[in-house]
């Protein structure tokens, strides 16, 4: 009896019969008539307005600020929680947290990770983002030092995500093209706070992921 791998591959080849194409050839031309670009450039006013609309529709809270006002905004949002502790990935710009008062700041990295239980005891997390998609209200984190390990943006109950306006594209294909440069990075696509519609299809925001998602859109 052959091993499972050999047998499954041979079953597939038999199933396909003579229709198996030469390796490396795309057997069917894939029509890609769909939009691969939006109508507006990344960061255009229309794209930003669309992102805000979509994010708010799924109950994320959006704040538009200048870079200079970001530290004050973060301080205000954390005070509102009220958060006594916040975790930030090691690559986050130190200046962002410059206005915090009475908040314990913990740093996390792949080299010096906090345990899941430690993260569970922390009130909020602040991360950067890789790219945002306006049409779907999606923010993508790809695990780089300013976005952190996946657990960091997951376990604390409040996630404040800082997105630069030039990171906002209109369509999904534009974002995928960007992420395609490093497909091996662990990615999390986030569209609003966690939610369930499992009980009579009533949408309930906030199940296991952060129950509050703030997006700081920085120009």
């Amino acid at each position: 009896m052959s091993d499972a791998r050999t047998e499954i591959l041979s079953r597939i080849r038999t199933a396909l019969g003579s229709s198996t194409p030469e390796p490396g050839t795309v057997s069917t031309a894939v029509p890609r008539e769909y939009r691969s670009l939006g109508d507006h450039a990344p960061g255009a006013a229309e794209v930003l307005d669309l992102l805000v609309d979509r994010l708010e529709d799924y109950k994320a809270r959006v704040h538009r600020v200048t870079a200079a006002d970001l530290p004050a905004l973060l301080a205000r949002l954390l005070a509102e929680v009220p958060a006594s502790s916040v975790v930030v990935p090691a690559g986050v710009e130190g200046a962002w947290l410059g206005a915090l008062a009475d908040v314990e700041v913990r740093t996390d990295s792949r080299e010096a990770p906090l345990s899941a239980t430690e993260l569970d005891g922390i009130d909020a997390v602040v991360t950067a983002a890789r790219v945002a998609v306006a049409e779907t209200g999606t923010i993508v984190l790809d695990g780089e030092p300013d976005q952190g390990r996946r657990a960091v943006s997951l376990v604390p109950d409040v996630h404040v995500c800082v997105v630069r306006t030039d990171q906002v594209v209109q369509t999904v294909p534009e974002a995928v093209r960007l992420l395609d440069a490093d497909p091996g990075r662990p990615q999390t696509w986030i569209s609003g706070p966690s939610a369930t519609s499992d009980i009579e299809l009533d949408r309930v925001e906030g199940v296991h992921g952060p129950r509050t998602l703030h997006v700081a859109l920085v120009s």
Partner: peptide, 21 residues
Amino acid sequence: STGERMNPYTSLWTGVTPGDG
């Protein structure tokens, strides 16, 4: 499926990322 523009979370991973996950 859910009639959403995008589902709240999509996770993508490739093998093992040292130190993450």
